Amino acid sequence: MDQLVSTEWLAGEMGASDLRVVDATYFLPDAGRNARAEYEGGHIPGAVFMDIAELADASGDLPNMLPSAEKFASRMQSLGLGDGSRIVLYDDSPLRSSARAWWMLTMFGAHSVAILDGGLPKWKSEDRPLETGRPEVRHRHFTVWKDDKQVAKKADVMANLHDKHAELVDARPSARFTGEEPEPRGDLASGHIPGSHSTPHGQFFHGDGTWKTGDELKAVFEDAGVDLDKPMITSCGSGMTAAVPLFAVHLLGKEDVRLYDGAWTEWATDPHTPKATA
Rank of each mutant, 00 (worst) to 15 (best):
270 D>F: 14
277 T>D: 13
87 I>K: 00
257 V>L: 08
265 T>W: 01
198 S>K: 09
171 A>Q: 14
253 G>A: 14
73 A>P: 04
187 D>R: 12
154 K>N: 04
77 Q>P: 04
236 C>W: 12
218 K>N: 01
119 G>H: 04
164 K>T: 14
167 E>G: 03
190 S>M: 11
234 T>M: 13
142 F>S: 11
176 R>A: 07
100 R>A: 01
88 V>S: 03
61 D>N: 10
237 G>D: 01
201 H>W: 12
185 R>A: 01
253 G>P: 11
184 P>L: 04
167 E>R: 03
155 A>W: 00
6 S>A: 13
219 A>T: 13
268 A>S: 06
161 L>A: 01
168 L>K: 09
60 G>P: 10
191 G>I: 01
64 N>K: 08
236 C>E: 11
207 G>W: 08
60 G>M: 06
111 H>Y: 07
177 F>Y: 15
69 A>V: 13
57 D>N: 13
244 V>L: 09
181 E>V: 11
25 T>Q: 00
100 R>E: 05
36 R>A: 11
189 A>G: 09
91 D>M: 09
249 V>H: 00
153 K>T: 13
190 S>L: 06
32 G>A: 04
180 E>R: 15
180 E>V: 11
227 D>Q: 02
159 A>G: 04
116 L>K: 00
256 D>W: 03
252 L>N: 01
113 V>W: 04
246 L>F: 13
152 A>Y: 09
42 G>A: 10
235 S>T: 07
241 T>V: 09
222 E>G: 09
83 D>G: 13
207 G>A: 14
242 A>M: 05
258 R>N: 08
34 N>T: 12
35 A>V: 03
262 G>D: 11
275 K>H: 14
75 R>I: 12
144 V>W: 02
177 F>R: 06
162 H>C: 06
161 L>R: 00
166 A>Q: 03
8 E>L: 07
